[in-house]
Every structure is written in C-alpha cells, then in structure tokens.
Design a protein around this nucleic acid. Sequence first.
DNA 1: CTTGACCTTCCCATAGTGGGAATCCCTACA
DNA 2: TGTAGGGATTCCCACTATGGGAAGGTCAAG
Lengths: 129, 129
Amino acid sequence: MNIGNAAKLSGVTTKMIRHYESLELIRSRRLSNGYRDYEASDVARLRFIRHARSLAFPLEDVRKLLALWADHNRASADVRGIALAHVEALEAKAQAMQAMARSLRHLAAHCCGDSRPDCPILDELEKTL
Amino acid sequence: MNIGNAAKLSGVTTKMIRHYESLELIRSRRLSNGYRDYEASDVARLRFIRHARSLAFPLEDVRKLLALWADHNRASADVRGIALAHVEALEAKAQAMQAMARSLRHLAAHCCGDSRPDCPILDELEKTL
DNA sequence: CTTGACCTTCCCATAGTGGGAATCCCTACA
DNA sequence: TGTAGGGATTCCCACTATGGGAAGGTCAAG
C-alpha cells in the first residue's frame, strides 16, 4: 500500500507520515521505485499515533506508548503513569487558561465597551505591578 | 538606559526585547556605540507587553492593544472586543483540554495499573474508530 | 506518448522563547 | 596603560507539530 492509501486509511496526512518516519515513530520500507510501502499493521500504528495525538500526548509520550503497546510484557502501570502525568499537565494548563479567561472576563465586565476611551483592561495592562 | 536595565525594570528578558523590536512592537533608538537606548516610556511599554503576554494574548493582539493604548481617542469597545475574542479562544482551548483530561482520567480509572499488561488506555488508542 | 495523479526530497513558515558563539564596547583596577 | 570582567551587538540554531509549495521522478489510462 502506498503512502496516500495509508493516509486515507489511518487519517494521518502524508506529510505527517513522512514526518513521523523521520522521528522514527513509524518504520519505512521502500519499493524498488523508492515509494514507501505500508501494510495493515502500519496503518494501525498510524491510527494509534493519531488517537494519542488527538488526546494531545506529546510525540515523546507517543513514542513511549508505542513501545509499551508493542511490548506484550508491559506493565499497565507504566501506561497509566504516562497517561496520568499527561492528564495533570493538561489540567494544569487548562486551569491556567481558565484563570486568565476569568481575569479578562472580569476586566471586560467593568469596561463600558462604547466609543469612550476609558478602559479598565488597558488600565490593568498598564499597571506597574 | 541600556537594554539590561530596561530588562530588569520591565521584567522582559533582553532576548525578548530584541525580538519584540524585530517585530516592531517596541522602537529602537541607538547610541553612537550601537547600544540600544531606552527610557521610562519604553519600560512601561515592555511591561504592558509582559502583562498582555501573561494573559496569553498572542503578539498580534498585543500589537493592536498597544496601538489602542497609545491612541487616546480609542473606543473602549475595540479593546473589549479583542479581549473577549481572546477569552473565547482561551475558554475553548481550556475546555478541549479538560475534555481530553476527563477521557484519559476515565480510561486510567479502569486501568488496574499493576504489572499485568492489560490496559484499557492502550485498547482505546488502538481502536479503529 | 501525453496527461494527470501520485510519489520523492528539500526548503520555508508558523508562535514564542531560549541557548550559545563570535565580536565589540566600556569601565575599573593594578 | 594594559588587562579583565561584564555587558552589548548580531547571527544561527533549538524546541513542538504541522503545513505549504517547488522541482523532479513514476505510474496508469487513454
């Protein structure tokens, strides 16, 4: 199967398949004409990567998860550890963003938002702190 | 005032000051020896940038906010518009991240997390969907 | 044999920040 | 006056992850 087909079946673009190959997340077998050649197991691997990425796992985590996935003697605790560490990172970021959103919403609520120049949002950004 | 001093007073690193200058967010006056020269108003501008960045405004928003800040005939509605658009972007991202965190926590809760290989997290990532 | 769709590699861009090298400048001290 | 240091300059490279696009090779159908 060529790369275009693998892309369609896996939902990973050809660009990204080549990129993942350069990072050695996916292997590369070539035909005599230089074209990449994939089989079902590669598509499954690409799908795994796509799913992991859709949960925002960084590629280095994906690399580890792929290794554990391939290792049938893995300890599920290792997978869980990676996942929970990632969850905490996600939640920390999400909370930070929501805190920023709250601050800004609060400031915006006190901004009359008309044609006059007075604006507590700018006042806040101007502060020396 | 040289760049190191402006950095200390503003809380923006010298690296970033030069970067902001290259993006024309901050002007550059030079002394005869080529050194950048700053005054209090520049430090205030850098602080403004830092505060806006601490609220995760993208630099293009910062550029607009700086322009409005400098324009004493601005309409506060313009500032508010930028801020609220940014708030919505923040909240959308935060919610997406929390949804991912929830999914993963749910999966992790069903993963025994011991030395056995069975793992619903990997099972999920493996799915064809 | 041409045409179009596919493949290849390579470079560039994004957003924002940082590291580090090579070089120059200024100041203080012996 | 010479030198050592700290700070300034520019320039290139790194990160994360993804995509655009060019120049060229290949395959299949008409």
